[in-house]
Design a protein around this nucleic acid. Sequence first.
DNA 1: CTACTTGCAAAGCCTTTGCAAACTA
DNA 2: TAGTTTGCAAAGGCTTTGCAAGTAG
Lengths: 152, 152
Amino acid sequence: MIINNKIDPEFRYKKMLTKIRESGGRITSHRLALIRLLAASEGHPNATQLYEALRRQFPTISLATIYKTLALLKDEGEVLEIDLHNDSHYDGNKPYSHPHLICTHCNRIFDGDIISGIQNLNQEIEEKCNFQVSRHQLVFYGLCEECQQKVS
Amino acid sequence: MIINNKIDPEFRYKKMLTKIRESGGRITSHRLALIRLLAASEGHPNATQLYEALRRQFPTISLATIYKTLALLKDEGEVLEIDLHNDSHYDGNKPYSHPHLICTHCNRIFDGDIISGIQNLNQEIEEKCNFQVSRHQLVFYGLCEECQQKVS
DNA sequence: CTACTTGCAAAGCCTTTGCAAACTA
DNA sequence: TAGTTTGCAAAGGCTTTGCAAGTAG
């Protein structure tokens, strides 16, 4: 089910459709297409990027629909919102808390869920701070491999 | 210089004033008062909270002035902006990247800079992802000690 | 006196909301 | 057909900006 540090988009696609149906939601062509994009979440798009991508195939689709469907999937726990400065990005491929690495040069967002130290961190926080962690948002800013060479 | 996991507010106060002077900025009564609040950053206030606090003593102060001074101090590296969902909070006491713990029940923001695992995390990211970390924003959501008892 | 800072109001951005028309099941 | 979803436009909330008046140095 896991391919190259990425969950099988087809699996995520079906899971999201099922969740919507189970909650009494309806499947429209716009939702189908949006969910297909979110299932892969290639590049961790924001609402506008999803909108632009879908507009080619569905010229009448609106940003409001994107936001409404994103809110629905967030409520169902099927999409993770990555809150950046006045610019939310979305991950429907791995909708659980995991670190992200953001390149300050090319602005790409990378998954950092290979990092193993998080579990220890949560435990350390519970022990030292008596704070019971339920979720997190960890963002590391810096230079990705490609940009390190360009900049240096 | 460090008191109870907090840097001496007086030290921070003087440091910020010096930085502003050095960059050709002027010291006004409003800036003095704002910097005094930021030096302690008790409770990690946002712009509106700083505004409300200062308005008692300076009825004519404006939100714009708060934002402009915050921007100035951010540029100088003397204030850390904590980017939360449509709501930035500020820390002028410890203006460097450090973790924050946010209680989802009482909404208080705690410093998590006692956590030692961060260094290892940065190193793990550089090794495994070939990503050169320059700064980070780590936010853990959950229940603080007091609220764990209230909720349970 | 000169240059910087202030307050006000307006504008910007992203996101949400209200509502009639369109559509799914 | 009944209830949900859509697009549009307007509204919301936070933050930034333009500019004339005020102030620090």
